[in-house]
Design a protein around this nucleic acid. Structure first.
Lengths: 214, 214
DNA sequence: GTCTATAAAAGGATAGAC
DNA sequence: GTCTATCCTTTTATAGAC
């Protein structure tokens, strides 16, 4: 638990090729950690899943919590990348917002992200820095991006937005609706495209009603 | 793990008085389970916290998972009771909705409920029946209640609500906004009354814009 | 019923050979 | 670097006295 920082590089040779075993371990750890919970996941299970001895796991990542941190960070960069751009080439606000909404919903409702988010929430006590990293890389970025767009639309007169950040937060809050909670509690399967579009449409409609230029 | 059902009653004497130790154990278990996570909580810690020997814990609740289930169920009934009524004596919809919104927000953002919800989410894999019980007793009830009220307002012409259930879900989704997520991730403390009212006001405003009678 | 003491198992981490 | 074998702590659960 002390030597968190120095176990990173020993798997790269002079040529910078990452070890294949390291990737296998990380994949296996992702499945095991996110399939269960931090407490329920054992290093034995991870080693078995990766087809590798336990000692090899410890050679690459010095301790369980380090490995867990690597898993969460990895997922974080994977998941958030595709989201966050509003394409504001001249399209009408309805179009643009519907696009953002459907992409956002598909992303956050996907099983990969749900499992990740459950894990982050569950271990936010033991690993506060991971919770913060998640929030900064995901929800916060998304909100700021959308706020920029809303602010632009306000200047152009296409929308009436007094508080871009507040409105952007509200927009995403509307999208994270009942379905999102049921997914979080594992009560609903990943929705179809139709389900996603319906949810997106309702939220966009209400949002536009409240932000129509007078 | 087999004898889940038969350890319930042995703490009541012929007069029906519940044993005080049982309550102490349940309180202690609530603190320990909800302070950490299922995996991180140990039966030793619970016994110590309750001021009781470990064997006594096992006498009352046969196993760790049974005790955990009892804790979650207990919390469930405690927390959801105060919420869920809309007072629709003739007050204007703004007033009524603001009342619902502030009470709802205060309830769900309170540390007790946050800890409970984190625990339910975290262990929804191991205890799906607890996740379902939570959803049924809490969010679902709240939505149905509000939908009834909205439907009434629609009939009276005070609001325009085509889909009461959908609108009710959206209303609560708006309330569970950014602040809720940051609370879930333990990044924000319990908000002041002012913070709660501001969030409630924004959501109610947008909701009314979209449901004004034409 | 409640306690002290103990069994039995699981899991995190390490030693040492190759 | 990777493996096998092992240590040692923690934790669930039980036995038996009072």
């Amino acid at each position: 638990m002390k030597q968190a920082a120095k176990t990173q590089q020993k798997t790269e040779k002079a040529n910078g090729q990452p070890s294949p075993k390291r990737g296998a371990i990380l994949d296996a750890a992702t499945r095991v950690f996110l399939g269960a919970s931090y407490g329920a996941a054992s290093m034995d299970a991870i080693a078995r899943e990766a087809g590798v001895s336990k000692q090899t796991v410890y050679s690459h990542f010095g301790a369980k919590n380090v490995l867990y941190g690597a898993v969460i960070h990895e997922k974080c960069s994977q998941l958030m990348a595709p989201l966050l751009t509003v394409e504001h080439h001249g399209a009408a606000p309805e179009k643009a917002l519907l696009g953002v909404a459907t992409r956002f919903l598909k992303l956050i409702l996907a099983e990969g992200n749900m499992a990740h988010y459950r894990a982050v929430v569950a271990e936010s006590g033991r690993f506060p820095e991971l919770a913060e990293a998640y929030y900064m890389a995901g929800p916060k970025k998304a909100v700021e991006n959308l706020a920029g767009y809303l602010s632009l639309m306000d200047k152009k007169g296409s929308l009436k937005v007094a508080d871009p950040l507040g409105s952007a937060r509200l927009f995403f809050a509307m999208l994270r609706g009942d379905l999102y909670m049921r997914r979080l509690l594992r009560m609903a399967p990943e929705p179809t495209d139709g389900g996603v579009e319906a949810a997106a449409g309702q939220a966009v409609g209400v949002f536009l009603d409240a932000h129509a230029p007078k």
